[in-house]
């Protein structure tokens, strides 16, 4: 495929176009019970240009969450470096939309969305304006005083997105934010996300296991190898912005790109499955040895 580039060249070609995030030789090892060491990520290079919507797809367990947590500063690298280029003029470097339910059950929708701003001590009037704007953008204005337990899963995820955007970070990190939603809600939220993102065009690193979602949202897609995670291929998504989530899927190129990613991904998913099977097998041996 013409729009697939080898990982090595991707790092160098994009480096010329003002990278926002520069990652070199990044590795992460976990020591697990029994004295073993799991290598979640292995000498990983990546450049993300300013304003790019980058999506990472890869088989489960390949280190996507680990990578994002290191970007977020919640986990420290074992080796290598993560560099975020450019001053932050007081704005936070990143904000994360976490995998799964992560909004505070004890705060109202409003307080959840305002969390980052309140923690930073932003003036009240500005908090009001910003939070009001993003609640409006996510269709949550009517639910500002509601508590999370009164909301559906899709609405809770909207709060999480509003919380991240309202904090106005340099970089947005999103870890499978829509994976728990049904198909219709997913499509709605993708469209909403694109609309909000178009206002600011922040640099985004987005993780998903849905190839369709990756193609719909991104400028560039990185396919990761099975564990230990490495950049296997980069695919550029040429569709113009602003995009229409539904119309996009009718374009002939859409199918081509989806197919392209799938063919890269298939091998890795199979590898990951074999790894998982291999992890179960020794246990059985252990039982018989006794």
């Amino acid at each position: 495929m013409s729009n697939t580039t080898a990982p090595a060249s991707a790092a160098t070609t994009t480096a010329t176009t003002d990278p926002k995030i520069r990652i070199r030789g990044l590795s992460k090892h976990f020591s697990v019970p029994g004295g073993h060491v799991v290598t979640a990520l292995d000498s990983f290079d990546l450049d993300v240009p300013q304003g790019q919507f980058l999506t990472i797809v890869g088989p489960s367990g390949c280190g996507k969450t680990t990578f994002l947590r290191m970007l977020a500063g919640l986990e420290s690298p074992s080796e290598g470096s993560i560099e975020v280029v450019g001053g932050t003029d007081g704005r936070p470097e990143n904000a994360m939309v976490f995998q799964g339910d992560s909004i505070f059950p004890w705060m109202s929708v409003w307080d959840n969305a305002a969390y980052g701003l309140t923690v930073r001590g932003v003036p009240k009037a500005q908090v009001k304006e910003t939070v009001g704007h993003y609640l409006e953008a996510t269709g949550l204005t009517k639910f500002a005083d509601a508590f999370p337990h009164q909301l559906s899963g899709g609405m809770r995820q909207r709060v999480s997105i509003a919380r991240a955007f309202a904090n106005d970070p340099e970089i947005l990190l999103m870890d499978e934010p829509f994976s728990a939603l049904d198909e219709q809600n997913k499509t709605l939220l993708q469209a909403e996300l694109l609309r909000i993102w178009d206002e600011t065009r922040k640099t985004v690193v987005f993780i998903t296991h849905s190839v369709d979602e990756a193609v719909t949202l991104s400028d560039r897609i990185m396919v990761m190898s099975a564990q230990p995670g490495r950049a296997k291929a980069f695919i550029d998504v040429p569709f113009e912005r602003p995009r229409d989530v539904l119309q996009l899927r009718h374009q002939p190129e859409y199918g081509e790109i989806v197919y392209d990613i799938w063919s890269q991904l298939k091998e890795e998913v199979e590898k990951a499955k074999q790894q998982a099977d291999a992890r179960v097998a020794p246990k059985r041996h252990g039982l018989f040895r006794r």
Partner: peptide, 21 residues
């Protein structure tokens, strides 16, 4: 643990983590 991660990600200091989480 995810709530502590959120607080940390949004820059909450010790006392704020205590008060809000």
């Amino acid at each position: 643990a995810i709530f502590y991660d959120v607080a940390e990600n949004f820059g909450a200091k010790r006392l704020t983590v205590f008060r809000t989480v």
